[in-house]
Design a protein around this nucleic acid. Structure first.
Lengths: 371, 371
DNA sequence: CAGCGTGACTGAAGCGCTTCAGAATGTCCA
DNA sequence: TGGACATTCTGAAGCGCTTCAGTCACGCTG
């Protein structure tokens, strides 16, 4: 028995004594043949060990791959160490899964985002870019391939669809909250954003040139509320927990020490909490800390974190809907859940919601208090 | 200008006045044509907006997709909430990336593991199964498709390669450590493993029938060291942090309360720590807690966690090497890093390391102490 | 009984690429 | 000068599948 070569549609057709089209129909269009014949074909197929149409050949013929390329800024472990990504991607996956789409992960390398050639070689119907730096080479590749694109937490790319969050507003809410509590000396803790590759102190001007939109927006939101306040800016050296902790120590070591630290993510805020504990600084007695995202760990810390909530699940779901509508129409129309409660605030344009943002709100917990 | 259809190899060939084979060679075998002609071809291609050979068509012709299907037991968010997965997959990705392979994620659904039809339709050269339950349907699909398979933390499937860890030994080390500290009343906290779907107390006999190999092995390791001790078993209701916390409270609520809790993962152990804090139970004064994995958060908790260390990065790296060697040879040979320090303990067989395990060791930190 | 609609199945043209066995041209040394 | 060898490029046969325009037979209608 020749088991060397996997059986093909032709083999099944020959063995069943029907045409190749009939076998194909048995799998793809059951209504095109009689139930009796279909059963017979499938029986023969099973007998031959035929596992169904080859996915690649099918893709070539239909020009649909059933995969969504997910472009990430960093390696998988750093990317997924942020619960926000997991939640968002999970929600996205749940939306596209019923339509048979899986996620093809393209992690980033040293250059920020996946290398261009990986994107060119990716077997996918559409790309989803998650918080890539401006001008990432992967975006060019997506364009030259003519792949539809959905961007998350990034500036809108012409022709793409976008979902983000109200970064600036959220940051402003957090800053205002602390200011109203009487704080005047602030630390701002930014994620690694390539302004100062090794991490470290930043001027506001430098920070405004960050390659990541959310960094820029959140910064603007903070600073807009912090006029006439002392502000120390710090960028983390990397995305690891270690570099977050290092940055936290640096911020808390400033003299005079800030009485409040605004963090651009919950991860960073939790690191500040940890550093404060190690230094014996009472939170919120001597130090107030605010995060961003309201990812699950934010409510588990002690004290639980005051943070800016964004609905990550909604964000992922909307991204998924944008994916599906781009896939269907080749252009963007308003995703279904935009009308749903607590979902996106849509851009003005009626038929084309090319860009929308999930709303934010301040969640006050135990990590912030009066000076 | 007709931009409707993306240009193909043929278009480029026609425009450049060469044969299709030459254009293909320009991309794939630069040595097959003169540098001058190659440059010319690429120039014409760029001019036409040709983004390079279509990945799907190329795959069909070469019968290589450049993708690795990763079969997960659960949804993405629960899967990636475990840092162990991120680390392992990241290490795997780093090994296969230089060879141009990306990861295609197939998350699990309600039935445990990805649905069979998703696996049948996945465009991938090989599958990697991560801690699936015994008899998961996805494994059958892999077999009928004739896809090579690497399993991680699972029983060896005939024809597949396997990498795991010394679960039983690790568990025994933790149990012995606590026993030597004088503990006699133990709680054992198992991850959700479908024995009792809603979670809850378990008998040893029930737990031995768990569908997950690591659960069974770790349990056996614990119990082997715990003769003549009181043991309470508890299975978490799910994989979420909430259900871990619920389970922790249940364990600590048992009367008499265990003086030590052995947890099958660091996640669970951290939940026990959190529950103890909320209940005002001093660790390690009144309660000792041990984890499993030594994932990064284990060393950040207070007190830092005593746990069983396994080298997750090595595990992922070895899995990656198994993938590559299966892809190359169609069969398994000893992965390179098996010989490297602190890597795998190889199965006896010389040429075929079809199954190996990374070593474990006990890391004693602050969460365990004398009764 | 001619005419026609219908259900069931098939033939063949692609989908866009790789690759291998040549063909054509040029080079080199005996 | 001529045959052996490179070097460079091409023709054509696939890779395994989908799909559309038919063909064929059959039963129904008027």
């Amino acid at each position: 028995m020749t088991r060397r070569r996997r059986p093909t549609l032709d083999d099944v057709a020959a063995a069943a004594g029907v045409s190749r089209a009939t076998v194909s129909n048995a799998y793809n269009r059951p209504d095109q043949l009689s139930a009796r014949l279909r059963d017979e074909v499938l029986r023969v197929a099973a007998e031959l060990g035929y596992a169904g149409p080859d996915p690649t050949a099918r893709s070539l013929a239909t020009s649909r791959t059933g995969a969504i390329a997910v472009l990430l800024d960093t390696s998988l472990s750093t990317a997924f160490s942020d619960p926000a990504l997991s939640l968002t991607l999970d929600a996205l996956a749940r939306v596209v899964d019923p339509r048979g789409h899986a996620l093809l992960l393209l992690p980033g390398g040293a250059q920020g985002g996946p290398p261009a050639e990986r994107v060119l070689a990716a077997q996918a119907d559409i790309a989803v870019a998650y918080s890539l730096a401006d001008g990432a080479p992967a975006l060019d590749s997506v364009r030259t391939r003519g792949l539809p694109l959905v961007v998350i937490d990034q500036p809108l790319v012409p022709g793409a669809a976008r979902i983000g969050c109200q970064d600036r507003l959220g940051a402003a809410l957090a800053a205002r909250h602390l200011r109203e509590l009487g704080h005047r000396r602030f630390g701002i803790f930014a994620a690694h954003s390539h302004v100062r590759p090794g991490g470290g102190a930043l001027t506001a001007g430098e920070a405004a040139g960050a390659a990541f939109r959310d960094t820029r927006e959140r910064l603007a939101g903070y600073l807009g509320e912090l006029e006439a306040c002392e502000v120390v800016l710090h960028e983390a050296a990397g995305l690891s927990a270690e570099s977050a902790l290092d940055g936290a120590f640096a911020l808390l070591g400033a003299t005079p020490r800030p009485s409040a630290v605004l963090c651009m993510s919950d991860q960073l805020a939790l690191a500040v909490l940890a550093a404060a504990r190690q230094l014996g600084i009472a939170v919120p007695g001597e130090l107030s800390v605010a995060g961003f995202d309201d990812s699950p760990p934010a409510s588990w810390s002690s004290p639980p974190l005051t943070t800016v909530r964004q609905d990550l699940v909604a964000k992922g779901r909307i991204a998924g809907e944008l994916v599906l509508s781009l896939l269907d129409s080749g252009s963007v129309s308003a995703p279904a859940s935009v009308a749903a409660p607590a979902s996106a605030s849509v851009a003005a344009s009626a038929s084309v919601a090319a860009s929308s943002e999930v709303p934010v709100s301040l969640v006050v917990r135990g990590s912030t208090g009066p000076v």
